[in-house]
């Protein structure tokens, strides 16, 4: 699909920074309320996308006291968890040798999903795997759920259980645009621009590779929810060009603008590229210690820490995996 201009991506999924914060706040707030009401936040999801909230624990006398001990995650803490799993997502995709396109699609799915939900409501590990599975399907590079599950020793039924809620949370807008294609396109354009000979082709290749790595970093920030992929590609190329020094980037940019009948001015474009760079600079991976602490908190929000609950869920998942193996035999 080469028509970003008329895409759902452009029309519905590029936000202002304020709007993003509002969305994160809304999801966090809802999870907090659920925690207050029910003492846990994790939702049960069914294959058909139907959801149920945790049941309020009314019987136990000590529930009120217990609830008050469980603290919800802050938005910043939620962000740390997402950062962790987004890195994991890239790792899993690399291990499976999936093309960049699939990794990027999965990442964008994951980010869009958690615009609608808090990590307290849906376990990010499961959602991450389902996003990878869905991205493979959507990009026509199908990998079976079983194979995917096996590759990382996870229950594949869980992947399938979450598939519908993922599509639904994406509002069924399943075609997404990643900057990688644009990098290739702009590099081709650069070839023409500087009338590249044999030697320059080598440097251009290196330039493209560095830019691609740069994009990998951007994809982990909020960038994909804030900027169109073309601008991210240009930001990647600009950084890469600063290293390889292939073209005069400003005149390259103005050439592009003049050719594309762009609605942006040069200054606007520069401003966007600077903003993208600053997102990459601001990006921070939480320390292991921090993560451990947040994860413990998160688990108690889910209601998985209490002894009873843990057992119940274990049984349930056993039951499910038995069922799925039966199904495998039948088909």
């Amino acid at each position: 699909m080469a028509d970003f201009m008329t895409s759902t991506h452009r029309a519905k999924w590029i936000f202002s920074p304020q709007k993003l914060v509002e969305k994160y706040e809304a999801a966090n707030q809802r999870a907090r309320q659920t925690l207050e009401k029910c003492g846990a936040t994790l939702m049960e999801v069914d294959v058909d996308g139907s959801l149920s909230y945790p049941e309020p624990q009314t019987t136990a006398n000590d529930s009120a006291e217990k609830h008050s001990r469980i603290k919800p995650l802050s938005i910043e803490e939620e962000q740390c968890i997402k950062v962790f799993y987004e890195n994991k997502l890239q790792e899993v995709c690399k291990n499976f040798h999936f093309p960049h396109k699939i990794q990027a699609t999965a990442l964008i799915f994951f980010k869009r999903f958690y615009l609608q939900w808090s990590v307290m409501e849906h376990q990010p590990k499961n959602i991450m795997l389902t996003c990878i599975y869905a991205a493979c399907k959507i990009e026509e590079n199908h990998v079976s759920a079983e194979e995917l599950g096996k590759g990382i020793s996870q229950d594949h039924q869980m992947i399938l259980n979450n598939e519908m809620i993922v599509y639904q949370s994406l509002e069924f807008d399943l075609i997404v645009y990643a900057p990688y294609r644009s990098v290739v396109g702009f590099t081709d354009y650069m070839k023409e621009f500087c009338n590249a000979g044999e030697d320059e082709l080598q440097t251009l290749k290196a330039l493209q590779n560095t830019a691609t790595l740069e994009i990998d970093k951007m994809m982990l920030t909020d960038g994909p929810l804030l900027f169109p992929p073309g601008q991210m590609a240009l930001a990647g190329l600009r950084t890469s060009n600063a290293l390889h020094n292939v073209v005069d980037f400003d005149s390259f940019l103005s050439r592009i603008l003049s050719h594309q009948n762009s609605m942006h001015t040069m200054a606007e474009l520069q401003e966007s590229l600077d903003a993208i760079d600053s997102w990459v600079r601001k990006y921070r991976s939480p320390s292991e210690k921090e993560l451990k602490h947040i994860n413990r908190k998160l688990k108690s929000c889910w209601g998985l820490s209490s002894h009873d609950e843990g057992k119940k869920r274990e049984k349930k998942s056993k039951h499910k995996s038995k069922k799925s193996s039966n199904e495998a035999q039948n088909t």
């Binding site: 895409s7 759920a145 069924f172 075609i175």
Partner: peptide
Amino acid sequence: IGKQKEGVNFTALREIKLLKELN
């Protein structure tokens, strides 16, 4: 939807993803 081995029907997904972008 059902409990199918490969989850949500491919044909339906293709149709949805493309028609969403075509106007």
